[in-house]
Design a binder for these strands. Structure first.
Lengths: 146, 146
DNA sequence: ATAATAAAAGACCTTTTTGTCTTTTAATAG
DNA sequence: CTATTAAAAGACAAAAAGGTCTTTTATTAT
């Protein structure tokens, strides 16, 4: 469904939030290891997210990644659009450039329902809500993290 | 959502079925043009589908592609699995290798619902049902085909 | 100040996806 | 039988995604 970059971004940010809850700022090496993602690729992805202002970072000793609690919560939708665009939320299942209610492809009606449900899910959930679930319950971030 | 190969495959097969309804066997050049897909890439994709037995072809004069009406209808799910695998129907939204009810990722419950809806859609719809919709109604296969 | 630490930047590489083109094979009409 | 037609096969290439590594810059503890 989502591409690798998006997956690593979500997992990475949720892990950062999880550590932030405990007053810690994890570094790239730790993050990559814990979410089971390639070290340098994760670094590159996080760097882009920092540049976009989705998460903050601090260099040097005691440095690492953290969320600015003054900023609004980061929805999955914003994150996904930033990493892979919005085709998942607008695109036609058939791949047609022009496909809408007035000009539907044969899959349109049923596909639009699913697309809307997906839209709702990623609009409602955010990095913080996912981290909270991981913190309290059965939910896990990586098999290693249970 | 689906990759290009899958999109071209679906559109191509629906177009073939549509022509078959009229007693015709379209060739690759015609198919590619009508579904607005790259000529030779479409050829390659259709060849694979023929080898897999999803559709039939005939070489030489009067040749082209057609469905064997004796074979069962081809669901989108079978088609999608053949072109891009089943990760869309089994994969974790988070990208975890192990993620299920007993070992859920923070997205699992809500994501599984969407995955199931998608599963239902592609299991119920098939090349023939899509072609029928295109034939009778508002639905279109490509803006050109209206 | 300086050494140690950790992210930023960016070059480089591999694999997969997407796409193009030429040659070969099979079928059929005449 | 031959010419024509159309798919099959497969080589090749461009673009995108995924991944690795080295060098630079910024921070901080000593």
């Amino acid at each position: 469904m989502f591409n690798k970059e998006t997956e690593y971004a979500i997992r990475g940010l949720v892990y950062i939030q999880l550590q932030n809850f405990e007053g810690k700022r994890p570094g790239i090496a730790e993050i990559a290891k814990q979410i089971d993602a390639p070290h340098f690729y994760t670094a590159k992805i996080l760097q882009r997210l920092v540049r976009q202002g989705f998460v903050e970072s601090l260099k040097g000793k005691g440095g690492g990644f953290y969320f600015d609690t003054k900023k609004p919560q980061l929805s999955l939708k914003q994150l996904i659009i930033a990493t892979e665009g919005d085709s998942l939320f607008c695109g036609c299942g058939f791949g047609l450039k022009q496909c809408d209610e007035n000009n539907p492809c044969p899959l349109h009606d049923k596909y639009a329902e699913i697309r809307n449900a997906l839209n709702k899910l990623v609009s409602e959930e955010n990095v913080q809500s996912l981290a909270q679930k991981t913190q309290r319950g059965e939910e896990m971030l990586s098999p290693r993290l249970r």
